[in-house]
Design a protein around this nucleic acid. Structure first.
Length: 489
RNA sequence: CGGGGCGUAGCGUAGCCCGGUAUCGCGCCUGCUUUGGGAGCAGGAGGUCGCCGGUUCAAAUCCGGCCGCCCCGACCA
């Protein structure tokens, strides 16, 4: 019997549970600097899987990677009025270098629009130079008041795409295309369903014309903004004199978009799929998809089991039934630790599939596969273990998405409801509420004040309820939009 | 920046009210026995009790100040 503290059950305190999973599954750790997080190898491995998948998707849509400076002259931020207003309060500023006071302070980038569009201005003369489709993998710094592991840290890793186009329509199409790309990634890779839509003015990115977002529901029924894509219009092009000569010979400002997702996605994964045993990883993002745990009693059993287990490990990792995408397998041959302890260990870390193999299995030419998501056990023959395991992994990926979608729908309220009913929902369990809104920012602010719920987005048509509410939930006036309300991180 | 909580071995903690030289568990090291759901026994190493000052014969404990962290809120990916 161990006296070690058990994981806090999610039902007791979701925040405490989340922190314990992140720390104990060894995804991340607190650093000596407040609000800055150390990403440990397991957490970084997940981020690398995310990077790899997204990068391939960006390249497939014609984007290329580049890198821009960490330091931005303070004056650059000021060139776009809304932008500076939004980011100045959370800027980290370097005032000294080489032992001397700088003539102009340098801002550690909170986002790179300004430095990037200042460069695009040099690169673009003609409509023939457009579009520019560039992505950068980088770290950014935002001096937040309150931080949370992965969800909001002072420094975080992300990908930021920055494009320039010849027309509004082209920029708008780009922003929408990336939104769809994000949605596909979140559903197919993260097994995390999201609602996409456009932000209200209150929630719009500082300097953007329009902001689109992906909104995911965590297991405490709160929303997490998982990704954003902005149509920046000509706001930054004007600020940085990013002009081009059109086919007709006139001069025009370029149209920009920017979009990004961050290490927050790792937190989203935990809060979407974790359970009381720890993390559950969707197979496609799991650094290790399969862990083989050998079981033995005596020395002779040990050598025999390990021999078969090693052979199984090799067969699995060399199997080419998935083409270039090899199975990611780990054999846990540690000695002096009981198999049960190994099970708990890998369950906490979220490995989707465990294969147990002991003397009885060796004798019968089989092994036992155990699903992390459902706990379901099934014997599979060693002869075709690879294809069986691959099939199970695919099923786990699909089932995890279905389960998350079902959970979200069970906590989604659609159709006409009164403000009183809404308040009751927000005071209780919380939910995604589709409701009518008259478009008045004052109403939006009042609801936030009274219930802590915000408009997550004006959703795309496919997510809207049918028929849309005709009245504003708060005022009873005719509704201008249907919106999704929820408390958010 | 407001409200709450906490700083004692690598981790989690007892002791504090009522001062007397630090408790227990996990982990770690050595040896033997173990291994189909967190192993057992024996031995062992490991501590500026967050920091500074005060009271006292004596401070983890009482008093004053400072620092740090976590949680809740305002702000935000």
């Amino acid at each position: 019997m161990s006296e070690e503290k058990k994981l806090t059950p999610r039902s007791v305190d979701f925040s405490a549970w989340y922190n314990e999973v992140v720390l104990r599954a060894e995804l991340a750790d607190y650093s000596p600097v407040r609000g800055c997080m150390v990403i440990r190898p397991h957490g970084y491995g997940i981020w690398e899987r995310i990077q790899r998948a997204l990068d391939a998707m960006f390249k497939a849509t014609g984007h290329v990677n580049a890198y821009f400076p960490l330091f931005i002259p303070e004056s650059f931020l000021r060139k776009e009025a809304e932008h500076v207003e939004g980011f100045a309060p959370e800027a980290a500023v370097v005032t000294h270098g080489g032992g001397e006071k700088l003539t102009e302070p340098l801002v550690v980038r909170p986002t790179s629009e300004t430095i990037i569009y200042s460069m695009y201005a040099k690169w673009v003369q003609s409509y023939r130079d457009l579009p520019i489709l560039i992505n950068q993998w980088a770290n950014v710094v935002r001096w937040e008041m309150r931080t949370r592991l992965f969800l909001r840290t002072l420094e975080f890793l992300w990908q930021e795409g920055h494009t320039a186009h010849a027309t509004f329509e082209e920029a708008e199409a780009e922003a929408r295309k990336i939104l769809e790309l994000y949605r596909e990634f979140m559903e197919r890779w993260m097994a995390m369903p999201v609602i996409t839509g456009v932000k209200t003015d209150a929630e719009r990115f500082a300097g953007a014309l329009r902001t689109y977002s992906c909104e995911a529901m965590m297991q405490d029924n709160k929303a997490l903004q998982a990704g954003t894509s902005h149509n920046l219009g000509q706001n930054f092009a004007r600020a940085f004199d990013l002009k081009f000569q059109t086919e007709a010979g006139t001069m025009e400002y370029a149209w920009n978009t920017s979009w990004g997702v961050s290490t927050r996605l790792v937190g989203a994964l935990v809060m979407t799929h974790g359970d009381d045993r720890g993390l559950r990883l969707p197979p496609r993002l799991a650094p290790i998809e399969i862990v083989i745990v050998p079981i033995w009693r005596s020395d002779s059993e040990q050598s025999r089991v390990l021999e078969v287990a090693t052979q199984l490990r090799n067969e699995l990792s060399e199997w080419n039934g998935r083409g270039e995408d090899k199975l990611r397998v780990r054999l846990d041959a540690r000695e002096g630790i009981k198999p049960g302890a190994k099970y708990y260990d890998w369950e906490l870390k979220g490995v989707p599939l465990r294969i147990e193999i002991g003397p009885r299995d060796v004798a019968s030419g089989s092994c036992v596969a155990v699903r992390r998501d459902t706990g379901e056990k099934r014997p599979i023959p060693l002869a075709n273990a690879a294809s069986e395991a691959a099939l199970l992994l695919e099923r786990i990926q699909g089932d995890m998405l279905s389960a998350a979608l079902e959970r979200r729908e069970a906590h989604t309220v659609r159709g006409e409801l009164t403000y009183e009913q809404f308040r009751e929902i927000m005071e209780g369990e919380g939910a995604f509420v589709f409701a009518g809104w008259n478009g008045d920012p004052a109403v939006e602010a009042r609801v936030k004040e009274e219930t802590k719920a915000t408009i997550r987005c004006i959703p795309d048509p496919e997510f809207r309820s049918r028929p849309s509410p005709s009245r504003c939930m708060v005022t009873g006036e005719p509704a201008k939009y249907e919106v999704v309300w929820a408390k958010a991180y």
